[in-house]
Design a protein around this nucleic acid. Structure first.
Lengths: 347, 347
DNA sequence: ATAGAAATTTAAAACGTTTGCAATTTTGCG
DNA sequence: CGCAAAATTGCAAACGTTTTAAATTTCTAT
């Protein structure tokens, strides 16, 4: 039953060749006679020979893996685009023969220590770092360690260069503002989060910049902040904005989950979206298409981004370019039915 | 900048001990003097020593990895619970110090060949196999190869034992029938898929069994089949069932995506859910909570299942139990608003 | 002090591959 | 036919760890 794995030594013996020759033949070295190369390839194929990864990694110093550390949050919290992200990474890697290793940081354990372990143990040739925090010790470590990585997201300001790919949230939020302004809205709300992630600043700044560009003093922006993973607190924060008499006519949420909460609470408060209130989100998660009346949002095409991140990382691993690689992806507006003209009368 | 990795040899030299002693000390062998063990542990910690995975794997024959092969389908198709599944696996593995490797089968490439590669290259100590097909070459290979694995899902009949964990779809579909029957429904519809996956049979059989158990000759079941990944064809299939004069009053869909299509098409056809038509799904994907009026479905708790799969696999790897491990998880009904009493009048 | 036992440490082989260098075989040409 | 050059193949070291078996040191009891 339990078939054993065939090794290079056995393959070589069966061909009456040295290990060296077989190794080189399989690697396609020109110095091995063509006839021999073919003979070896044929034998390897029919013996089902696959080189041992550990041995190869040990001697070559390259594992052929790219690492991703994923943090475990509470029992009901799953990164809503992890599936897409991982699929995209896999897609990008497979064309270069690389694979993904997923290391998990158990609840309450530092993501950095897991990252460190992945790096120092030689499991991966490079890593992808997501959800960039305002002060991110992971980037500092990788930088100092000189280890290949690509960040999905950016730092706000950094005194060092690093490789990143980010979705242009600033542009999207500006676009959202412009669209709503054209529809007559003057009083805006922003629902943001209290966690120190850089994307909240980038998006909010994009919104503020668009407002400033417009230069209309009658434009007003209210901001409310909610903790990211606490559903109750999120609802409360949203209601703080909805309940007051002079509520905004248009609310932009930092991401779709927040926008969906806004829509739910608006309905509960007897408001009609988009008649009384326009709502715009960001991310285009699956539920946004289904939640009535259909959330207008921006598609960040996570899968595509992940594929590019994989490409970037493999380039960095192979070529160690001197200048950092960076890429800013413009998300596309997905207009659905949650936005419309500003209501004429005010209660 | 680029700090080098510290090796056991260097650590040993710095402690003026042999490699052997340091290795054993770190492994906590009793035979090494306690004082030495502490001294070594201390030095290792502060030097940030992490053993090289490749070297360790090579000599021990254990990689500490569990493999999962994920297939890439079309550009817009992402396994809707991949994120949850991967999170659960990671959660289950991390407590035992194992990690996950994700190998991607490029579009059009055989999943089996990737699996084979993972196994033969020694990258993983065991693998998880999902989406079991009616005739599944992957299980046959792993079985014949004597390689540790756990299947998420079951074969319909097999002449060999293997380790599996499955969601009890048969039970759920029976439960759905009973509930709908009690609500007065007598004419049922089932929307299923044309792909040869075993779960379609298990669920359909569960439904049929519940009908048979009831023994009411007035109960009628219509079945319609759609290709799994073709949205247009799916819509057509659903309409084939909805458009006819004597359409069912209750439709059970093989999984939520299909149920959501049923609800959308029902609304488009001017039907009200659940007044004119009850709809029940399976899987409890995120969108189901948002799609009006809220889809009644079954929660398979993928994340929890994945965690158990990880546990099972690690047990199998460590203990090689003689008898196969199997586990049938009963999904829980998530009653929302898409089901109700059978309509009184028939057009 | 000392034999013997117990405790502690170490040398060396092994895991399966890649690769620098050397050895061997084949080829080309006078 | 012989010899150098070219083509092809092979030896052996190396990668960083674990582990078997053996060596060394320390302790105990006489």
């Amino acid at each position: 039953m339990t078939t054993r794995v065939i090794t290079l030594k056995e393959l070589a013996a069966s061909l009456d060749l040295s290990i060296t020759t077989v190794s080189r033949a399989l690697a396609g070295h020109e110095q091995i006679a063509l006839k021999t190369r073919e003979r070896v390839a044929q034998a390897a194929r029919q013996a089902g020979y696959v080189p041992n990864t550990a041995a190869r990694t040990l001697v070559s110093g390259r594992s052929g893996f790219v690492g991703l550390v994923l943090p475990i949050r509470g029992p009901n919290l799953v990164d809503s685009f992890l599936g897409e992200f991982v699929t995209g990474l896999g897609e990008g890697l497979v064309s270069h023969g690389a694979d993904l290793i997923l290391a998990t940081a158990a609840f309450g354990h530092s993501e950095l220590s897991v990252l460190r372990h992945v790096v120092e143990s030689g499991r991966a040739d490079g890593v992808v770092v997501t959800r960039i925090a305002e002060v991110d010790e992971r980037l500092a470590y990788l930088r100092e360690r000189g280890f290949p990585f690509v960040a999905h997201g950016r730092l706000l300001d950094s005194d060092f260069g690093y490789n990143w790919l980010d979705t242009d949230g600033a542009h999207a939020f500006g676009e959202a503002f412009d669209m709503l302004y054209e529809l007559g809205h003057r009083h805006f709300g922003l629902v943001t989060i209290s966690e120190p992630m850089t994307f909240r600043h980038l998006r909010q700044d994009g919104l503020a910049a668009a407002i400033a560009r417009r230069g209309d003093p009658s434009v007003r922006l209210d901001v409310v902040t909610a903790p990211r993973f606490d559903h109750e607190a999120r609802i409360q924060a949203v209601n703080r904005m909805l309940q007051r008499p002079d509520r905004p006519t248009a609310i932009v949420a930092l991401f779709d989950e927040l926008a969906l909460t806004v829509m739910e609470e608006a309905v509960r408060a007897g408001l009609s979206v988009p008649r009384d209130l326009s709502v715009i989100g960001f991310d285009n998660i699956a539920a946004s298409a289904y939640a009535p009346p259909g959330l207008t949002t921006f598609d960040a095409s996570i899968r595509q981004c992940a594929r590019e991140i994989a490409d970037m990382l493999l380039t960095i691993i192979a070529e160690r370019p001197a200048a950092p690689l960076t890429r800013l992806i413009r998300p596309t507006l997905v207009p659905r039915a949650s936005h419309g003209p500003a209501p004429q009368t005010r209660s």
